[in-house]
Amino acid sequence: MSGSRENILRRLRDSRETGAAVGRDFTVIEDLQWSGDEAVARFTGLMRAVNTEVHETTREAWPAKLAELCVAKQVMRLALAADTPVGQAARSVLLDTSVETVAYSRDIEDWREELFFQVDAGLSTAAGGIVETGSLFLQTGPDEPRLLSLVPPIHFVVLSRADFANTLLEMLRRHDLAAGMPTNVLLISGPSKTADIEQTLVYGVHGPRQLVVLLTD
């Protein structure tokens, strides 16, 4: 096996002339910029174009909106990360409703079946939004488990407008991710979809059927 490694590297080294780097000019991406209102309009427009529900709300009002939506969508069990500000706010408002919250605080091995087949929705916190493409930007970790935004059929996300970036490039730089990456950096742009059957667009394949964004100030 290590023989293969050496062979591959040797062949690559033997056969080339210089090995000098090629310059890259990123201005074509850096030039992409949208101002406040324009940015919100573009972001929500792109998100809605791919079947995402976007609710414009505020830092104070979003938990009530979440409760209202959960009831309307007949969510019985909502998974969330209990220790995050978003998780805590959701829990306290949902206490008075029929919606049961499930804390994502155990290792997945202990409750795989429950998550896969008995949870109706997940709630997560977006670390940002990308205006160019209308994408949510998530960083996974203890407070943002990977499967939370993937397995339950409905995915609620809380996002603040203050965390918008024009492009992915700007976002990567803002978080200095080149210096260290979380286990997953995720861009989510709409509910799961496919067009593999005669190019007919169908939402809800392996991931959530519904993506609901609570966009705060």
Partner: peptide, 21 residues
Amino acid sequence: QNVTTYVNMISGPRRDGERDG
């Protein structure tokens, strides 16, 4: 499409304190 539904950048297996992966 201007972007795919998911872009995932994976930088390792489950880390300490993480619940899945």
